[in-house]
């Protein structure tokens, strides 16, 4: 079997099993979005206006949540050393782990987005667009977070340090994600430009993330 696919499969099985955090990201996302109206009040017009922003912030925080365990568990049980010694380039192995993380954390979150949109008074037809921006933008979040996860494991620190390192780098993704979602719902700015830039950010981080994360692991764990 192709080692790349095998690694994705392994990580997904680990995430789905007991103790894995597969649905935890989606649950966290749901909770954060449900908490927001308690902070800003139940005004439906206001909620509809800032709905996409709430959904995007929730997705950003949820994608950070499980990241600090991404390499830490593999480092503890030694399988990270095996990956580093294996024949597959470390960049590919790291990318496989990120893809598995995205499939188990970000994808469920995108699936439940339309339901949450109803609670925020965002129209059902517009929810498809918000979900589409999340689908295009969350890979960027995962792959930027991948760098932070690799740095955190080489420093044997995680949690808050990871968030402090990664969050400023996700500013562009947040800007263009929310802009595209707002353009789709409220207008009048066109949907195309922010959405294509969002896709470009995802594609760029798809390259930068694994290269930088692999470099961090090689430099830090040698």
């Amino acid at each position: 079997m192709n080692p790349f696919l095998a690694l994705i499969g392994r990580d997904m099985r680990l995430a789905i099993r007991v103790g894995g955090g597969a649905l935890m990201g989606a649950l966290f996302y749901f909770t954060v979005v449900a908490m927001t109206p308690f902070a800003i009040g139940p005004d439906l017009n206001l909620l509809a206006r800032i709905g996409p922003a709430i959904l995007w912030l929730g997705a950003l925080l949820a994608s950070l949540l499980a990241l600090d365990r991404l390499f830490a568990t593999d480092h503890e049980d030694g399988s990270l050393d095996l990956l580093m010694m294996g024949t597959m380039p470390l960049e590919l192995a790291v990318a496989a782990k990120a893809i598995a993380h995205w499939l188990t954390t970000a994808l469920p979150l995108i699936v439940i987005t339309p339901v949450l949109g109803l609670m925020l008074n965002v129209e059902m037809s517009a929810m498809g667009w918000v979900a589409l921006t999340l689908l295009a933008g969350t890979p960027a979040l995962t792959f930027i977070g991948l760098i932070g996860a690799a740095l955190a494991v080489t420093l044997r620190r995680g949690g808050l340090l990871l968030a402090v390192l990664v969050l400023p780098l996700t500013v562009p993704v947040l800007i263009f994600g929310v802009a595209a979602a707002n353009a789709a719902i409220i207008g009048p700015a066109p949907f195309g430009p922010p959405f294509t830039i969002l896709c470009a950010l995802s594609l760029a981080s798809l390259v930068l993330g694994p290269v930088a994360a692999a470099a961090a692991l090689r430099q830090g764990l040698e």
Binding site: V171, F176, A216, G220
Partner: peptide, 19 residues
Amino acid sequence: AAAILALVGAVNIPIIKFS
């Protein structure tokens, strides 16, 4: 680790400025 972060930041700062 800091060197990697510095390089990633250097790549990202123009993108952040633009966005």
